[in-house]
Nucleic acid binder design. Sequence first.
DNA 1: AGATTGACTAACC
DNA 2: AGGTTAGCCAATC
Length: 118
Amino acid sequence: MDRPPTAFEQRVYAAISQIPAGCVTTYRELARYLDCGSAQAIGQALKRNPYAPEVPCHRVVKADMGLGGYHGETEEGPTLQRKRQRLLDEGIEFTSAGKIAASHHYTFPISKHDDTQA
DNA sequence: AGATTGACTAACC
DNA sequence: AGGTTAGCCAATC
């Protein structure tokens, strides 16, 4: 099934590509960066994942810092384990709760009211 | 064009 | 702490 990539999807992929290695972001932050307001729309675009290995979608986790899903699978399986292993390979550490360490939580350069950067 | 889903989230019980 | 409900936005049927 070849779907024409929508502008929204391209935004998602572009945003994920901006995530540095060893860092992860949440669907929520990602959605906010895209001014979407809904993280589910992000997952909807990623679940199709037309650019599977090209887009580091494994760096996108849930707001609960859980793994989330990968390649269309949400339950614990070989696919989710692969995602976790990939994050470990990036240097990301997991807590005993099976979640990502907050230190690896990367936030997008959102210029809302915080102009301490620019 | 309308209804349903979905790699989510927050709130509620 | 865990299960359910509602809300959200875009894609798909």
